[in-house]
Structure formats: structure tokens, C-alpha cells
Amino acid sequence: MRMKELVSKVLFVDLIKGLSVTFKSMVSHAVTEQYPKERSKIYERFRGEPRMAVDENGKTKCIACNLCAMNCPVGCITVEAERDPETKKRVLTRYVFDMQRCLFCGFCEEICPVNCIQLTTDYEMSQYDRKDFVLELNELEKGMEKIKYKK
């Protein structure tokens, strides 16, 4: 046993074994991605940038029920609504989503009774200014303005 150990030590068996693994991976194909050009597959359930859905007339689907704001652990959603005196329905006046605080937990999406707020599969959300992260309703419907880096 001792002899065997000594021989393997002298012959660098352990190092050769390890190096064989490294050499094997040198001839196998690469697993890395060249990010901005190649993009990995994003699954359907991915919770990314928030978006508010609109109906066929282009009006917001939101019924101002305030459930999303109540179910937000960090309180990043603010819903302001008024009562329409004619129809006696609540009408949305302002909807603010603060992306800086969002945890992307998906509770708002889950609780929404009309599937209005959705967390989409977009994941590139960088901005130059902090105030650009506070999204109003029209920004939420169109999606965040993407800044393209130019050389």
C-alpha cells in the first residue's frame, strides 16, 4: 500500500488525472455565451419587467381594486382612484410602480383579478437615472424606454 502510494506520488498520477479532465474539456464545445449577441433561453414564467395590459380599445384593464398594492411586501405600487359619479365605478387616476424597490416576487401578478399587471420576460432594465425607475401608467403600458448604448 505504502509502495503504491509512493509510486503514484513520484509519477504524478494525481496531477495527470486532474489534467486529463482539463484537457478533455478543452476539446469539448464551449458552454459560455457571448451575451449581447447570444441570448440564453428565457422561460415563460420568468418574472421580469412589469407591464400593464390594455384591452382592445387601448384602455387600461386595471379596475383599481388595490389588491396588488396590498399584496406587495415592499409597498412599491401606489394606486390612486376616483369614483365615477355616473357609473359608480372606481376609475384609475394614477398608477405608480417603483422598480427600485421591487422584489420580483410575483404576488401582484398572482393576485390581479383581471390579469392587468404582468411580469414579462424582459430582463434588461438598466437606466441612467434613479427617477427613470419610477414608472407611471403610460410607461408601464408601453414598457420601459430602453437606452441603447452607442459607441
Partner: peptide
């Protein structure tokens, strides 16, 4: 994780 829960790290 992303496929099942929708997030990679903080999965909830």
C-alpha cells in the same frame, strides 16, 4: 428553477 418558479436565485 427559472422554468418552475420564474426566478433563478430568489425564487419565492
Amino acid at each position: 428553477f427559472e422554468m418552475v418558479t420564474g426566478a433563478r436565485l430568489t425564487t419565492n
